[in-house]
């Protein structure tokens, strides 16, 4: 069976401990979390949590059921089962000296990134996109040039008129 990557988006009560219930569930049952991002929504009593995990069909089915079983979880959607947009934010601090400086700017432009901070020797670049696009950027620049990488983890939203609301 295939270990496919799934992006699961969860609407949950914005209560203390709600996040640890989700994290605890994954460690207690031996499921993987590749990334996790969470913040309150327009309704401050609700949080939206996006997590990326992988597993075969049976494992994903169990993950979805176990998440739904948590009392704090209001609703969830497996974005991999529908047409959806997935985005991740990345901040990269790179070396940018001499010839490297122009090349780095050019690559950032190609990937639709912005340079947020400039020093004599470095750039700090902001990039958004799918996880694989961000991976590609990191592969495109020289490995030695990378000083620091910060990634938000994926978030996502389904396409079309349907919305995940309480």
């Amino acid at each position: 069976m295939n270990n496919n990557r799934h992006v699961i988006s969860i609407l949950m009560e914005n209560e203390a401990g709600a996040l640890s219930r989700v994290a605890n569930l994954f460690s207690a049952r031996g499921y993987n979390i590749e990334s996790l991002s969470v913040a309150p929504t327009d309704d401050p009593t609700l949080s939206r949590l996006t997590l990326v995990t992988c597993g075969n069909e049976q494992i994903i089915e169990q993950i979805v059921k176990q998440l739904n079983k948590l009392v704090d979880v209001v609703k969830l959607i497996d974005l991999s089962e529908t047409e959806a947009i997935e985005r991740e934010l990345m901040l990269v601090k790179t070396r940018a000296m001499g010839e490297q400086r122009a090349e780095m700017k050019r690559l950032a432009d190609i990937f639709g990134g912005h340079v947020l901070d400039v020093t004599e020797a470095t750039y700090t670049i902001e990039l958004t996109g799918t996880g694989s696009k961000l991976d590609n950027f990191l592969r495109a620049i020289e490995k030695d040039a990378i000083l620091e990488v910060v990634r938000s983890g994926a978030t996502g939203i389904a396409l079309g008129q349907k919305a995940l609301r309480a």
Partner: peptide, 11 residues
């Protein structure tokens, strides 16, 4: 009554 009990160990 618990959906997570269904097809957990046996399909």
């Amino acid at each position: 009554i618990d959906p997570s009990s269904i097809s957990k160990n046996v399909q």
